[in-house]
Nucleic acid binder design. Structure first.
Length: 539
RNA sequence: GGCGCCGUAGGCAAGUGGCUAAGCCAGCGGAUUGCAAAUCCGCCAUCAUCGGUUCGAAUCCGAUCGGCGCCUCCA
């Protein structure tokens, strides 16, 4: 990797700096094929319901794909589903269903949650069980080249044959413990890892040159990324917790087989931490806390108990399943909350953080209503530019548009710098404030309402806001008002109350007017008096 | 023990060598309002500590204190 040279490519695409875990530095994104970007994100092992932590990667990469597409790249985004694994076997046995049934159920849960979070840019979701040929061929290739060996139906990667092993996480082979279990004795080195596992009686199995068995954990990603993106692709992503051993093993496998780099850039997102407690959500800290509370658990049974306790504890903290959280808070609020912090940082996640995100979002929602009041058109029906080139505009000598253009410029600069969504959101707030100020100053809700030129200017500003927010996957559709606001009777009753109160105000009977407003406030209904009438909201 | 990350206002969080240290939440003052709400304006940080490099550091280096991750399954 040579020094960063900030030059746009020949087609005028902007230079985007990306932090590479492999080099621990930022460098300009230079795709293998100019104009195309292939992204592989490690998806879930579908043995249990998704929790919020599983959404961090999808949300940030969904945003990255939107941004790259906006910038003129053609993006192919792959997220795998690992649907065969020891944990699936164990869990399905416990539940008395087949592994594929379990996988199907949990995959559906995952897909539902992705939809709830507004993640819709995934191009391929390959499943390990549907990629067996590729996995077996990959494994066989490694044996042929001498990087792997077979022992009684198991196949292991021979770490000693790869001088580069450990380069991603700066580890030396002899310091590694390696995976334990019954297979440990068969391995040449403790750090060797399974590419293929011989099936025990009753376990799901696929035929292979080494007998009936199933893939090890890491091989499916190497095989499927090769299948869909090629031997060398542009970006490989995943949570920070996957760097070792998962990604370390992936690079080893792929680069030994291909003799070429696996990914040009490795991107790792930070992990979530529960804001109310120590430790990442669903992580080891919770498990250990669980074990501590479950004192006396035998060591070898610890993992089972710990996993169960971690779940229970999450629920008892009000975290619940992700689906419940999306239902309770709304996907947009969660997405906004995740995007407020840079993707490489640890995100504090909890109800307080979500509430605060909600308060911030209200500023935008209120502006959208205001925009509709002023222009008569819906913010959500504005048709913004879908490309960076098309979104650029000449502000002329218009002060408002000059400020809008400035916000847009800063937003894009932030995104160009390793997808700094936190900074970009700050620019969005400045933009909405600028637009509000404009409405205030030009009195567009009052006397200025008929000034078509001003309304057009405001509309252009709002369109830019929509353009930029759309990159983050925000404000793409109206959020449900919720809380029964759509109830027809409630609407009629509110009309009645407002009418009575308006009459009271006309008669200067402010005691009565305030009583109505205060009593409604106690019921959770807020009234807002405006020159042209009274608005009400629930919540 | 090994590898790595982080410590910016009451809370959250941008900023990684140089204009007045983004933005959000909370608070305070003001405009507006019959009063509110909403909106707008203003106020609120010298960047964990110490030392060093530099004309100049939150930003680089070292030490110390504190928090965290990985080294075993984990997004």
């Amino acid at each position: 990797m040579s020094a960063a040279q900030a030059t746009a490519d020949a087609t005028g695409r902007p230079t985007i700096q990306v932090y590479n875990s492999l080099t621990r530095s930022k460098a300009p994104l230079e795709p293998v094929t100019p104009g195309h970007v292939g992204i592989y994100l490690c998806g879930p092992t579908v043995y249990d319901k998704a929790h919020i932590g599983h959404m961090v990667g999808p949300v940030i990469f969904d945003t990255i794909k939107r941004y790259l597409t906006y910038c003129g790249y053609q993006v192919t985004w792959v997220v795998n589903v690992t649907d065969v694994d020891d944990k699936l076997i164990k869990r399905s046995a416990e539940r008395g269903i087949s592994m594929s049934q379990l996988a199907e159920e949990m995959t559906q849960d995952y897909l539902d949650n992705l939809a709830g979070m507004g993640v819709d840019g995934i191009d391929h979701m390959p499943k390990a069980t549907e990629s067996m040929d590729a996995i077996i061929a990959f494994t066989a290739g490694l044996i042929d080249k001498g990087f792997a060996y077979e022992v009684e139906g198991d196949v292991f990667f021979d770490v000693a044959k790869d001088p580069q092993y450990g380069k991603l996480t700066n580890r030396s082979v002899d310091e590694l413990q390696g995976e334990g279990g019954g297979a440990a004795a068969k391995k040449r080195s403790a750090a060797d890892f399974a590419l293929w596992k011989a099936a025990k009686q009753g376990e799901p199995a696929w035929e292979s040159p080494w007998g009936a068995g199933r893939p090890g954990w890491h091989i499916e990603c190497s095989a499927m990324s090769k299948l869909l993106l090629g031997e060398t692709f542009d970006i490989h992503g995943g949570g920070l917790d996957l760097v070792f051993p998962h990604h370390e093993n992936e690079v080893a496998q792929s680069e030994c087989l291909h003799g070429a780099p696996m990914a040009k850039v490795w991107m790792h997102n930070g992990l979530l931490r529960a804001s109310a407690a120590a430790g990442k959500v669903g992580g080891r800290a919770e498990r250990e806390a669980g074990e501590a509370g479950d004192q006396g658990a035998a060591d070898d049974a610890g993992a089972d108990i710990a996993a169960a306790t971690a779940q229970k504890m999450s629920r008892s903290k009000g975290a619940g399943g992700l689906a419940d959280q999306i239902a309770k808070f709304g996907g947009e609020k969660i997405r906004f909350c995740l995007l407020r912090t840079h993707y490489r940082s640890t995100v504090l996640f909890g109800e307080e953080a979500l509430e605060e995100s909600g308060t911030g979002l209200e500023t935008f929602y209120r502006f959208f209503k205001r925009f509709e009041r002023v222009t008569g058109g819906s913010f959500y029906e504005l048709a913004p530019a879908t490309t960076r080139a098309a979104g650029a505009f000449d502000a002329g000598d218009d002060a408002l548009l000059a400020t809008v253009a400035d916000c847009r410029q800063r937003f894009l600069a932030a995104m160009d710098d390793d997808f700094n969504t936190g900074s970009a959101i700050g620019d969005l707030f400045e933009l909405v404030r600028t637009l509000n100020k404009f409405v205030d100053q030009e009195n567009l809700e009052g006397a200025g309402k008929s000034d078509a030129a001003k309304l057009a200017t405001l509309t252009q500003g709002a369109t830019t806001l929509r353009e930029l927010a759309g990159i983050l996957g925000l404000f793409r559709a109206p959020v449900d008002a919720g809380g029964g606001a759509s109830d027809e009777l409630v609407g009629k009753l509110m009309e009645l109350f407002i009418e009575l109160r308006t009459a009271a105000r006309k008669n200067k009977d402010f005691a009565m007017a305030d009583k109505i407003r205060d009593d409604l406030a106690n019921l959770g209904v807020t009234l807002e008096d405006r020159p042209d009438g009274t608005d009400w909201t629930i919540g």
